[in-house]
Nucleic acid binder design. Structure first.
Lengths: 203, 203
DNA sequence: ATACAATGTGAGTAATCACTCTCAATTGAA
DNA sequence: TTCAATTGAGAGTGATTACTCACATTGTAT
């Protein structure tokens, strides 16, 4: 019941509802009811409903602007000395995939609403896109230099990686319940990473 | 002004608006205004607003249930005899990617709304998912048998392929205008296909 | 304890929503 | 032409929307 708490509860409830129902389909009255606060309280903390979405976006940017982009480089530097570098790469990718999977709700909300609201799109591109692009360039450049990756456009590699991750997440989040999927997420990740690294062709 | 025309005009307008604004954010009055009909006319042809979305879905199923899933197998069977099979594969993938690119609006609407409306999800899984899964199993099984693909789960391969395509489409549809992308879609496709076939690692 | 600002509340508001209803225009068959 | 059915139209409906406002409660500093 602390003061700062209510804002967080509202935000968390909003994320849940935005994910399950969509932004426009979620009413402020429903957020209030589910958060256990009065509707007026929402507008005490957020000027408009859209501002809640923007807060969600900042949450997203915070997570992915830092955790996603900065950490893996530190990891790869500290761990790549004594281990097989391909294994380290796998670990890092798995770590990234797990992060994506864990924040699938945030990702979904931002990616979908990005298409409808240009301001969000710009923010995402500015804060995530460029940073991610630069980091990935480093990431793949490092791999290329050490003879792990072949020559190629880092953007294409990044796109492929994100595509693989998205495919995984979509399958598990959207199709898994009620579908025929019996494999664990961990196993699927291994397959996806292997496929991303080695392709489908016989070598 | 023909009778059957108005229904088509309404549907087409709805697709445009659903794509640019989202389903719930699009009002029936706006559809009516943009389609140049009275609001009552909409409900003469569609019982509810949701029924318009279901009509969009059937449009989607029609296109992808046949054109997308059935035809490529016929193509690969008829063409793989005398041509380099890897080239045939490329052609087919390119064809599929183009189809996805061309129907990106339909795909977006269905994929997003699928998450919110269980009935749509079921229909998509029943009509597209399973069909696509079976076809792809054949597709990759054929490749494995002929020593083109290595052993592996067709589902993972399918997921990777769809991921690659999604990454491409997302990049081009969501980021391209205003972004730093200068490459043609064709070139990006080649890169994506190459990456999907051979992976990022040095062989 | 008192004062003051910050936070919480819920009834209230105008606008908009999906949808209905009544009636006019158009159609096709006789 | 005549009749009946289908289709188009648009004002009207209750419900719901995001948001406001006057007031109650809380926390903090003096």
């Amino acid at each position: 019941m602390a003061r700062e708490n209510k804002k967080d509860v509202i935000l968390q409830t909003a994320i849940e509802l935005f994910y399950t129902k969509g932004f426009t389909a979620t009413s402020t009255s429903e957020i209030a009811a589910r958060a256990g606060v009065a509707e007026g309280t929402i507008f005490r903390h957020f000027k408009t409903k859209k501002e809640i979405l923007l807060a969600v976006l900042e949450n997203f940017i915070e997570v992915y602007g830092h955790t996603f982009a900065v950490q893996p480089i530190q990891d790869i530097v500290s761990q790549s000395k004594d281990k097989d570098i391909k294994e380290v790469l796998k670990l890092i990718m798995k770590d990234r995939l797990t992060l994506i999977e864990q924040n699938a709700e945030l990702i979904w909300i931002v990616v979908t609403e990005m298409r409808y609201q240009p301001e969000i799109k710009e923010k995402v591109i500015d804060h995530i896109g460029q940073k991610l692009f630069m980091i990935m360039r480093e990431f793949f450049a490092y791999g290329v230099e050490n003879g792990i990756f072949r020559e190629g456009d880092p953007t294409a590699m990044l796109r492929g990686f994100i595509g693989s991750a998205l495919g995984l997440v979509i399958q598990h989040k959207a199709f898994a319940p009620g579908g025929t999927t019996t494999k664990s997420l961990d196993q699927s990740m291994d397959e996806a990473i292997d496929l991303f690294l080695n392709g489908v062709c016989v070598q």
